[in-house]
């Protein structure tokens, strides 16, 4: 006697009605092409569009920045900041942008504090008011810029209160031997900072600080 299960048949071998699939080089190549155009095409198209000619930007006679191709001045203003000692620091603000990111420049003549204190002041009195849910990296780097100046650098993330979009940035603070302070705040939306970080670094390294 056999069990009922013994009568359960096995399947015919192989997939019914199907053969070995072809390699499909052409459609795979098309996928790679569409992917490349979608990912990189914007940069190529942007390269063909006219770029405003931006000359060197000088702030308060404290710092001169040479914008790279594609960067343009979006905003310029006189600003003042309350310092830790209660004094008011006055200076000039300029924003350079290239659409997907920006470099905010703040020049403060005779700032009277060191780089660390100025960095702390910027995070506390500027960034925390501009951004929601601000989170600043614990570690502050001491770096030497290519132009020979000592600087401190920290990163942050937060969100734009108007659009709610996430913002990430890297702040470099320099206090020159003459006591002038310069803050370079390079920032971008949602994971795009790394795409402009080389250009930001080049502009910061090439800046002339008095």
């Amino acid at each position: 006697m056999t069990s009922p299960a013994a009568n359960v048949p096995t399947r015919p071998d192989g997939p019914a009605g199907t053969g070995r699939p072809s390699r499909r080089w052409l459609p795979t190549g098309l996928v790679a092409l569409v992917m490349s155009v979608t990912v990189l095409g914007g940069f190529v198209v942007a390269g063909t569009l006219p770029v405003p000619d931006v000359r060197a930007v000088a702030l308060e006679g404290v710092v001169t920045v040479h914008p790279l191709p594609g960067w343009e001045v979006a905003h310029r203003d006189q600003v003042s900041l309350p310092s830790a000692s209660g004094e008011v620091l006055s200076g000039e603000f300029t924003q350079l942008t290239r659409g997907n990111g920006a470099l905010d420049l703040l020049a403060l003549p005779e700032v009277g504090v060191g780089g660390l204190a100025l960095a702390d002041l910027y995070a506390t009195d500027v960034l925390s008011h501009q951004l929601e849910r601000l989170s600043v990296t614990d570690r502050i780097e001491q770096i030497l810029l290519r132009n020979g100046l000592e600087a401190v650098r920290f990163g942050y993330i937060g969100s734009d209160p108007q659009s709610g979009s996430p913002v990430e940035g890297s702040v470099t603070v320099v206090v020159s031997p003459a006591g002038n302070g310069v803050i370079f705040d390079g920032w971008a939306f949602q994971g795009q900072l790394e795409l402009i970080v080389e250009e930001l670094t080049a502009m910061i390294d090439g800046a002339e600080v008095a």
Binding site: V39, G42, V45, A46, T97, G99, N100, G191, Q192
Partner: peptide, 28 residues
């Protein structure tokens, strides 16, 4: 990951054509 790069590139195109203020509202 690829979208982050692609959005950035085409975002530059929007900014070049429409200007910074238009880009801030419409790039996404």
């Amino acid at each position: 990951t690829l979208s982050a790069i692609g959005n950035a590139g085409w975002g530059v195109v929007v900014a070049r054509i429409g200007g910074p203020e238009f880009a801030a509202r419409w790039t996404a």
